[in-house]
Measured scan of single mutants.
Amino acid sequence: EQYVVVANYQKQESSEISLSVGQVVDIIEKNESGWWFVSTAEEQGWVPATCLEGQ
């Protein structure tokens, strides 16, 4: 499942990744806490779901 990044995010923990507007990410896991585990071409990590929008 692919989502587009709609807000920049700077990682704050080692388990997170930074996002840039316009990036496309694959969703691996959706957590009810509002944090999703995603994959980019370069890395995987947790990001806030509020930064993502379905395609």
Score class of each variant (00 low, 15 high):
residue 45 G to N: 00
residue 7 A to I: 05
residue 19 L to T: 02
residue 10 Q to I: 09
residue 55 Q to P: 14
residue 36 W to Y: 10
residue 8 N to Q: 10
residue 27 I to L: 10
residue 8 N to S: 14
residue 19 L to A: 03
residue 55 Q to A: 14
residue 49 A to E: 06
residue 48 P to T: 01
residue 40 T to R: 15
residue 21 V to S: 06
residue 37 F to Q: 14
residue 54 G to R: 13
residue 13 E to S: 08
residue 11 K to R: 15
residue 32 E to T: 09
residue 34 G to E: 09
residue 2 Q to A: 06
residue 53 E to C: 09
residue 49 A to M: 14
residue 8 N to Y: 04
residue 1 E to I: 05
residue 20 S to M: 09
residue 8 N to P: 11
residue 16 E to P: 02
residue 19 L to F: 04
residue 45 G to A: 02
residue 48 P to A: 02
residue 23 Q to S: 11
residue 51 C to N: 03
residue 13 E to P: 02
residue 36 W to F: 15
residue 8 N to L: 04
residue 32 E to S: 11
residue 49 A to L: 13
residue 22 G to W: 01
residue 25 V to Q: 08
residue 37 F to W: 08
residue 11 K to E: 08
residue 22 G to C: 02
residue 25 V to G: 01
residue 36 W to S: 07
residue 43 E to A: 12
residue 47 V to S: 03
residue 12 Q to Y: 05
residue 49 A to H: 15
residue 2 Q to G: 11
residue 31 N to S: 13
residue 23 Q to M: 12
residue 14 S to L: 14
residue 1 E to G: 05
residue 9 Y to M: 03
residue 30 K to T: 13
residue 48 P to N: 03
residue 1 E to A: 04
residue 35 W to C: 11
residue 33 S to N: 11
residue 51 C to S: 07
residue 55 Q to S: 09
residue 28 I to V: 14
residue 5 V to W: 00
residue 37 F to R: 15
residue 31 N to K: 13
residue 3 Y to K: 12
residue 9 Y to N: 02
residue 7 A to K: 13
residue 55 Q to K: 15
residue 9 Y to I: 01
residue 14 S to P: 13
residue 44 Q to R: 13
residue 48 P to M: 01
residue 31 N to C: 14
residue 41 A to L: 12
residue 37 F to E: 06
residue 54 G to K: 06
residue 6 V to R: 13
residue 30 K to H: 04
residue 13 E to C: 07
residue 13 E to V: 11
residue 19 L to E: 01
residue 37 F to N: 15
residue 9 Y to G: 01
residue 46 W to P: 00
residue 7 A to S: 12
residue 10 Q to Y: 05
residue 32 E to H: 09
residue 19 L to W: 01
residue 30 K to P: 03
residue 41 A to F: 10
residue 38 V to S: 01
residue 9 Y to C: 02
residue 47 V to W: 00
residue 12 Q to G: 09
residue 18 S to T: 03
residue 5 V to S: 10
residue 34 G to W: 02
residue 5 V to K: 03
residue 19 L to V: 12
residue 21 V to Q: 12
residue 37 F to M: 11
residue 44 Q to F: 07
residue 53 E to H: 09
residue 13 E to Y: 06
residue 54 G to P: 10
residue 17 I to K: 02
residue 39 S to L: 05
residue 8 N to H: 10
residue 7 A to N: 11
residue 3 Y to P: 02
residue 4 V to Q: 13
residue 14 S to F: 03
residue 10 Q to W: 05
residue 18 S to C: 15
residue 48 P to D: 06
residue 2 Q to P: 11
residue 10 Q to M: 03
residue 27 I to G: 04
residue 24 V to I: 13
residue 28 I to H: 12
residue 32 E to Y: 04
residue 15 S to R: 14
residue 25 V to A: 06
residue 17 I to P: 01
residue 50 T to G: 13
residue 20 S to T: 12
residue 18 S to Q: 04
residue 23 Q to E: 13
residue 41 A to M: 11
residue 10 Q to V: 10
residue 33 S to T: 11
residue 50 T to D: 10
residue 3 Y to C: 04
residue 38 V to K: 00
residue 47 V to E: 01
residue 29 E to L: 09
residue 38 V to F: 00
residue 41 A to K: 08
residue 46 W to H: 01
residue 35 W to Y: 07
residue 37 F to C: 09
residue 25 V to H: 02
residue 40 T to I: 10
residue 10 Q to S: 13
residue 34 G to A: 07
residue 43 E to L: 06
residue 7 A to T: 14
residue 28 I to Q: 12
residue 4 V to A: 12
residue 41 A to Q: 09
residue 38 V to L: 02
residue 10 Q to F: 06
residue 14 S to Y: 11
residue 35 W to I: 07
residue 12 Q to R: 11
residue 52 L to S: 02
residue 12 Q to A: 09
residue 7 A to Y: 14
residue 50 T to R: 13
residue 9 Y to D: 03
residue 1 E to D: 10
residue 17 I to G: 01
residue 27 I to F: 09
residue 31 N to V: 08
residue 27 I to E: 00
residue 28 I to N: 07
residue 8 N to E: 11
residue 54 G to C: 12
